[in-house]
Design a protein around this nucleic acid. Structure first.
Lengths: 126, 126
DNA sequence: CATCGACATAACCATACTGTTATATAACCA
DNA sequence: TGGTTATATAACAGTATGGTTATGTCGATG
């Protein structure tokens, strides 16, 4: 259920998808409405939506033949939390650096070697 | 110079790269030292470092035959800033929602249609 | 029922990503 | 000089990504 940071960040790495999220922040809307401002086919938008959905960043409803799209903020919050833990670094707050270092070592800091071997992306804890 | 959010988020979407950043938060270090905990060849790490470097997330020094890697926090701060603007959404702070909507419309909110045409990823303002 | 509108799916293409092994480069060291 | 260490680069392979066009599906509606 909780999509990893991998998926979230990957979804956010595309400007079209970020624009879609920005649009959705204004409120739930339809695929057609989302597609309109882009110079892109409708299926392309559907694909982007699927990516966002798999990342848990949007959810879909049902309204007759329409499939309203709604923003889901939770993964954003998680990504934010990850970034937040580095805040001390760009704020050069050395008093907070200790806390940061502790946290990083506990969290993702010194993980067991991700053993991708053949797989594409090493799984991490959810 | 300022790598777009595209590049930053893409760089963050990989767990190996996030682990590298976490390690670098503890301080500057060498490629070999970075590679050690991973079950991955040295060239693979070099490639990841190149991705991080292109994203402006790390910078390289020179110490004899060593190429020490240092974390650069600025892109993290920028990504954080982007996420931050959505904070109201996951905090359900409706008083902040107005500010959010204003900001989104000014920023990336309702962008001119990204016209990818043939190109891979529509460029956005730096 | 026939069709339209909104959307999803399929098949396809080009390019990018992530890993590999093998090899090159560059600085130090005996 | 010749070897070793640290890192980069090249060539290759498999999968993923982001777009396309064509077609399918489902619900509303004349």
């Amino acid at each position: 259920m909780a999509p990893a940071l991998d998926t979230t960040f990957a979804a956010l790495a595309d400007p079209t998808r970020r624009a879609i999220l920005a649009r959705l922040a204004l409120g739930e809307t339809t695929v057609m409405d989302l597609a309109r401002p882009f110079d892109m086919s409708q299926p392309a938008i559907s694909k982007h939506l699927k990516v966002l959905e798999r990342a848990g960043l949007v959810s879909r409803g049902r309204d007759a033949q329409r499939r309203p799209v709604r923003l889901e903020a939770k993964p954003l919050a998680e990504a934010n939390q990850w970034l937040e833990s580095y805040r001390a670094l760009w704020e050069a707050r050395f008093d907070r650096l200790d806390a940061l270092l502790q946290k990083l070592q506990a969290d993702e800091g010194a993980p067991l070697p991700p053993k991708p071997g053949r797989g594409r992306k090493p799984k991490e804890q959810t």
